[in-house]
């Protein structure tokens, strides 16, 4: 008996054991049933339907942007959690921690680089994903609301990156955030320099910018608030909306295409109001 055969027999017998059966609920066979169950019974994989439009598998339709964004988001969560081990969001200690990370922590520099470049990659992919969804008209009925959720996710991604920018507490982050939050000062009605702001009693110490920064300048409070937004609040929000987003993708009919083309003549006439 050839080696491979012997190996296959061994594998088959291994799968018979109680342990294997208790773990792998679905037999790994090449039957349509096993293939469907393999996806449907897996808590992670059942994000996908059992079967999918044959042409959607090709790269050129979806460009894989949605999936890759989600994957990079997972990488960011993972590296972010590790970074949280070393980072203290207080004014004096933050910069020193980054130095510590860069010089002392094994793979610390790699970790920080991965997190930062991952963040930039995610922002790029999110925009490309929106671009693809628009080009393929996948926002049209019945997927309108999912597009809205997508836009919210886009905003959350930008906010995630913006709050992360400030955390190393270096000149680049500090001034970038100062410029960003200076715009908040000019919010109409809520900003102390925005139109109608002062009339409503907005001062530099109670307007929306103060709310964002926890102070009138980007100081340790701002660092702490940015840290909490960045590590807890926005990731949770983003995860929630992602769940809704994935859910609606499936519920609104799965991947929208590549659908059969529709001709102009087949446009249904609007019912008279």
């Amino acid at each position: 008996m050839s080696l491979s055969a012997k190996l296959a027999r061994l594998l088959k017998s291994a799968r018979k054991t109680q342990v294997a059966k208790s773990v792998l609920r679905v037999k790994h066979e090449d039957t349509p049933r096993a293939r469907s169950l393999g996806v449907l019974s897996n808590v992670f994989l059942h994000l996908h339907p059992a079967k999918i439009n044959r042409d959607a598998v090709a790269y050129n339709y979806t460009w894989g942007m949605g999936g890759m964004t989600f994957y990079v988001y997972l990488v960011l969560v993972f590296t972010g959690a590790l970074l949280m081990f070393y980072y203290h969001p207080s004014k004096v200690v933050a910069y020193r921690d980054i130095l510590y990370l860069e010089n002392d922590v094994p793979f610390g520099k790699l970790l920080r680089n991965m997190h930062r470049w991952g963040a930039h990659l995610m922002v790029i992919m999110v925009q490309l994903h929106m671009f693809r969804v628009f080009l393929t008209g996948s926002y049209k009925k019945p997927r309108e609301f999912n597009w809205v959720v997508g836009v919210i996710l886009l905003v959350l991604t930008l906010l995630l990156s913006f709050t992360g920018y400030l955390l190393p507490d270096d000149q680049l982050g500090f001034w970038a955030v100062t410029v960003g939050t200076n715009m908040a000062r000019a919010t109409p009605l809520l900003g102390n320099e925005g139109p109608f702001g002062p009339q409503l009693g907005m001062t530099p110490y109670n307007d929306v910018r103060f709310g964002l920064l926890g102070g009138s300048i980007v100081d340790s409070n701002a660092l702490l608030r940015a840290y909490i937004w960045h590590c807890i609040a926005i990731p949770i929000l983003a995860s929630l909306f992602m769940i809704v987003h994935f859910w609606r993708v499936r519920k609104d009919g799965g991947i929208s295409g590549p659908a059969p083309v529709m001709l102009e003549s087949e446009i249904p006439q609007p019912r008279e109001p």
Partner: peptide, 28 residues
């Protein structure tokens, strides 16, 4: 991502100094 992280280092400039404005100070 890995190759990019090995080759390029995330920037770390001087510690934040509120009274030294960077010129140009740009948002992300």
């Amino acid at each position: 991502l890995l190759v990019w992280s090995i080759l390029l280092n995330a920037p770390l400039e001087e510690p934040a100094n509120p009274n030294l404005t960077m010129n140009p100070s740009k948002a992300p």
